[in-house]
């Protein structure tokens, strides 16, 4: 079994305003926990969206699980967690149970139907994330932290091999944020799930990431966390937080 999970070759993306990503090439292996960092507007979210087929790739290519993106059909292998506040309509009438169930659709053929086994899977993941008591709550009634865990449950209920997270804790308080990142690290370690995490949270990266991808429209660094700690890029990105970042690891 190939260990390549995500790969890009000379990938470039443009919006109307101009080029957002230029000549990005890297490869993520099975089990990696990759922290994607860079200044605001550096193209981090665009890179994630390009890898998931949510924005068009200008030139170059991307592969998921060794398959070119245009031909990729195994979406059940992928879990995706965007910034929740941008995502959820507060009047949307779905319960937590129904919302998590959406994560199972990638496993289903037409006509998609959820059965008792699926209900059991939803109950198990809700239990694992400690949110069983929210099962029948409407998503509009949840706090930011609860909503984030529900969306994480939706992303992992199908047992994905790759978990992609785009600034998932932007709206959370520091304590909830810490718990959330510990949860992601557990999923990475215990299930062997490959993690791609876009974040500004140096603490989370320092504590958990095995690799770093530093981006500012171009790829400035891709390698192990330890290499990144010794590089000039870390100081330029994190400045005074550099020490803090390293302290988490050592």
């Amino acid at each position: 079994m190939s260990s390549e999970i995500v790969a890009t070759e000379s990938l470039s993306c443009s919006y109307r305003e101009g080029r957002v990503l230029e000549d990005i090439s890297f490869q993520v292996e099975r089990g990696d926990y990759v922290g994607i960092v860079g200044p605001n507007g550096s193209g981090k979210s665009t890179l994630i969206k390009a890898l998931l087929g949510l924005v068009s790739i200008g030139t170059g290519s991307a592969r998921l699980f060794g398959t070119p993106l245009s031909g990729f059909r195994d979406w059940h292998k992928v879990g995706y967690l965007p910034q929740s506040l941008h995502l959820v309509n507060p009047v949307f009438p779905a319960t937590v149970h129904e919302t998590v169930g959406l994560g199972l659709l990638s496993l289903k053929c037409f006509p998609k139907r959820l059965n008792r086994d699926d209900t059991a899977k939803i109950d198990i993941v809700l239990d694992e994330l400690g949110i069983s008591d929210l099962k029948y709550k409407l998503i509009g009634e949840l706090s930011g932290g609860q909503l984030q865990r529900v969306l994480l449950a939706r992303a992992i209920v199908n047992n994905p091999e790759l978990l992609v997270l785009d600034e998932p804790t932007a709206a959370l308080d520091p304590e909830t944020r810490g718990r959330f990142y510990t949860m992601i690290a557990d999923i990475n370690r215990t299930r062997g799930v490959t993690v791609l995490l876009v974040t500004h949270d140096s603490g989370a990266i320092g504590e958990h990431a095995s690799k770093m991808l530093y981006l500012d429209k171009k790829l400035l660094f891709f390698g192990s966390f330890d290499q990144f700690c010794c590089s000039a890029e870390m100081s330029s990105l994190f400045g005074e937080h550099s020490q803090h970042l390293m302290c988490h690891r050592h």
Binding site: L52, R73, V78, Y80, L105
Partner: peptide, 9 residues
């Protein structure tokens, strides 16, 4: 969510 639906295939 259109975005999440797309990533669900």
């Amino acid at each position: 969510s259109d975005e999440l639906a797309k990533v669900s295939g």
